[in-house]
């Protein structure tokens, strides 16, 4: 699937550490422009650490994280987003000391043609109603919408989503699935971390399976049925 495309993101032999703990142990991932890719795996497999290493939140790293023509490892942390990367962190990362509107406007624009504020409020009318309340007064689902919306506003075309469905009601999960599909159809590139395999299966083109800080399997969307036995083993579902 990647054969003809020059990958947008190419992670090569990435090792990461939290203090003395060696978390990622040499992972390789490629994401082509326009693809939706998931990282699957149990808790503690290193999925979130992979996203954090790409964003530079985890600083102690070796290897290469090539994004377009830049090695992200060499950048100061605040320059990473400006390459055109949007980050929707685990537990959404809504700022309690900022209103909904301030949260939405917080991330600086990183590329032209970001979704306008008007469009965002059309897409998420709940946010408009709660515009002036503190960010963390929103429900979990609304916070997730806000976390995605504020990234769309920046114009980033490559989005890292860390467990966007965690702890949310099924109807909201469905809504988030719709949003991701919509972004996909608009040509966004998405790297998604998910525990919820059924949710991921409907969205992604390819899946990387992680275990103990390594990528242990790679599954194309059309191989899902034949590889489901192996997946069950890795995910323990």
């Amino acid at each position: 699937m990647l054969d003809n495309a020059q990958p947008l993101l190419k992670v090569e032999n990435l090792h990461s550490w939290y203090g003395e703990s060696h978390i990622l142990q040499g992972i390789n991932i490629e994401v082509a422009k326009g693809e939706t890719i998931t990282l699957l795996g149990r808790n503690g497999a290193g999925k979130t650490t992979t996203l954090r290493s790409i964003m530079g939140v985890v600083r102690k790293r070796t290897g290469k994280i090539q994004f377009q023509n830049t090695d992200l490892i060499k950048l100061p942390q605040h320059r990473v987003a400006h390459q055109g990367i949007g980050y929707v962190p685990e537990e959404r990362g809504i700022f309690a000391s900022l209103s909904v509107d301030e949260n939405l406007m917080l991330p600086p624009s990183v590329a032209k043609n970001g979704t306008s504020v008007q469009e965002i409020y059309q897409l998420f009318p709940n946010l408009l109603e709660r515009k002036n309340s503190p960010g963390t007064k929103l429900s979990g689902g609304e916070q997730q919408m806000l976390a995605i919306a504020r990234i769309l506003r920046t114009g980033a075309r490559f989005i890292l989503l860390d467990e966007p469905t965690e702890g949310l009601a099924p109807v909201i999960v469905e809504r988030i699935g719709e949003i991701i599909l919509k972004l996909k159809s608009k040509g966004y590139t998405i790297l998604l971390v998910e525990q919820n395999f059924r949710f991921a299966a409907k969205l992604a083109d390819r899946h990387y399976v992680m275990e103990d800080g390594k990528v242990v399997d790679h599954i194309n969307a059309n191989e899902l049925t034949e590889k489901s036995a192996a997946l069950h083993k890795f995910l323990g579902v």
Partner: peptide
Amino acid sequence: ENPILAQAFGI
């Protein structure tokens, strides 16, 4: 409130 996340947003 959260300097690391603020930096991840490009601040």
